[in-house]
Amino acid sequence: MEIVYKKPSNLSETQPNNFCPGCMHSTAWKLIGEVLDEMELTEKCVWIAGVGCVANAHRYIELDQFNQPHGRACAGASAFKRCNPDTFLFTYQGDGDLAAIGLGETISAANRGDNFTVIFINNGIYGMTGGQMAPTTLIGSKTTTTPFGRTAGEHGYPIHMCELLNTLQAPSYIARCTTADVPNVRKTKNCIRKAFQNQLDGKGFSFVEIISNCPTNWGMTPLESLDYIHDVVLKEFELGEFRCR
């Protein structure tokens, strides 16, 4: 019988991913895993974990990996890739990690054009620590540290990482996509593939932002959270390829 679909070879058959039910981190990892297999990168790939919900999946993801402190994945990736340029390297970071505590490291690595890929999961909240305001939290959103809703006057506006990085000369690929519906899942996979190909071609820094959900801390069912992405989040965060060299 012909095999038409199988689980990526780099996701564990025995370990759970430990993400909350309905969380689309697991979708992102399925896409990354599939692309790595399809591009035959699974055996030469190393990824650097940010600090946050991704810690739930360390045993689930069967790829060489190491951790950097909160927010420092891009600084570490710059050094690691320069020391071992033959290693295929990506970071996987959430919005608190990449856009708050690691904002300087992210922008600086992008500005140097270091030749690795960033997968940036934007769900507008700190998941692991229990639902605090992220730099990407929408105006009006109630979180555990904005109990009356985020206001522009008090907290500023949500940060747009793709647009921000798109002001720099060096990055070779910048895209924002979402896993909120099937057509967009396919587009997301395509963006990941392009970003990885850019790294293989030595074109420098590539960045894929994935608009994701957090049913647990948004206080929604998984299906409600997907509707919320379409009805509200995507009004703030425009999808598309901002740069493709």
């Binding site: 600084a75 690691f80 020391c83 300087g104 600086s108």
Partner: peptide, 26 residues
């Protein structure tokens, strides 16, 4: 060898961390 001017001491030391992880004397 590799020389990197970090964007801060925080970044420089974290670059050192990853360089050490790469097996390079750093």
């Amino acid at each position: 060898g590799v020389f990197l001017q970090g964007e801060s001491e925080v970044a420089s030391a974290n670059m050192l961390l990853a360089a050490a992880a790469s097996g390079t004397r750093a």
